[in-house]
Design a protein around this nucleic acid. Structure first.
Lengths: 227, 227
DNA sequence: TTGTCGGCCGATCGCCGACAA
DNA sequence: TTGTCGGCGATCGGCCGACAA
């Protein structure tokens, strides 16, 4: 899985430690994330945090839901181990900027109309103009076929049209197939990303399904958006 | 799973040993059935057949495909064990007839028209008259709703109508849903069974999917039909 | 700029009798 | 008796601009 698409799906709040960097491992946080509340009382003999060195990071995606996650391999740093002087574990360069250029990407939360069966997808103008291939506006109406690769490398085909009064960008043919196959519902988000060589990719962020999900104000998220 | 419905799905050629009866267990046949060819050469030290006593029989059905199978528990009969004088292991009474009355059932192999999407199911007259609830022929046309329980206890609803020239029995509304949910194709068989208390049940026999399946002559199977 | 709606057209579903095997 | 076919009406999918937030 391409790490750029992975990061676009994960969102801008997610930063991954670089290989060879040093991080603190929290056993309690890991256990709670994996299987719920665990008693790590002071008498349990488990340290609260352990200084480790990252030995491997693997970017992955669930084959069913397309949701992204990562496997991080760590080894404890022994107190007598010499310090290699590596970075702070946030995967950032010394100037605080990502060492890797961030490609253009855009995330939108699906509206009721987007997810409705039989409807299309309303493409925000910013997304259409900066992420999608350039449309030939001299045609009437301007139409093109857009190909996008998902996290599994599968290619999806969409009809991209610029029409209506006032004019707006829409994905029509191919969109409902995508919604049904991916089992998307209103509230889920879709991520479009343009790689350096001009290829288009598409990712998914499922809405939190748990009870008591707060009613977020709708609207689109700034490029490479929410957490 | 009701043993009568199980037997109707398995077909008349299948006879199960009764609990407490004695049978021969063939390790080689069991192994080949489970995982393919296994070498049971004379030097392997495994006996070709072992006299056993059946201690339990469990009638089951695959939750996905509805295909029926059974779990048979056996314990080897030791040579010094006294003979209880039980039967021959075919589950038959001393007169060779089934100890349990066989309920009315009917099996039909689905034709192309039966399996076609958008079509109905052509009910053989014998099945409609002996298995289905009695139809009120004074109505025009005679119609009723038929409820049938599958191997999981799930109830399916069909519209049963007697119409056309010449007159014939058909299942219309509800049939295509059943075909799609059960993923039935032409060549698969459907089994209808009426229990003693008048309830209707429905089972499935999948066609052999393997390559080189011979072209069987079509047509319906006699009551509680094929193997 | 874009979310939602009603209109509308074509495709499909599914019920029907005709006909013949 | 029943398998297959063409007809046809109802429903649904899906593309469209209108309109307003």
């Amino acid at each position: 899985l391409d790490s750029q698409l992975w990061h676009a799906c994960a969102g801008g709040m997610v930063q991954m430690p670089a290989v060879n960097s040093k991080v603190y491992y929290f056993p309690q946080g890991h256990a709670e994330h994996a299987q719920g509340i665990v008693d790590f009382g002071s008498s349990s003999g488990v340290l609260a945090l352990i200084l480790c060195r990252v030995t491997a990071v693997k970017f992955m995606a669930d084959p069913e839901t397309d949701e992204v996650f990562a496997k991080i391999r760590m080894t404890p740093v022994r107190s007598d181990e010499p310090d290699y002087g590596d970075d702070d574990g946030m995967g950032l360069g010394s100037n605080g900027a990502d060492v890797q250029e961030k490609p253009a990407s855009f995330a939108k939360t699906l509206t009721q109309s987007d997810a409705n069966n039989g409807g299309g997808f309303s493409v925000p103008r910013y997304c259409a103009e900066t992420i999608f291939p350039r449309l030939d506006y001299s045609a009437d109406p301007p139409v093109q076929t857009v190909l996008a690769k998902d996290v599994h490398g599968e290619v999806w085909k969409f009809r991209h049209i610029y029409r209506g009064t006032p004019r707006r960008h829409l994905l029509t043919t191919g969109w409902s197939t995508f919604v049904n196959q991916k089992k998307l519902v209103a509230g889920d988000s879709i991520v479009f990303l343009r790689t350096e060589n001009g290829d288009l990719c598409v990712g998914i962020r499922r809405a939190k399904r748990g009870v008591g999900v707060g009613h977020e104000s709708p609207g689109w998220n700034p490029p490479t958006g929410n957490c």
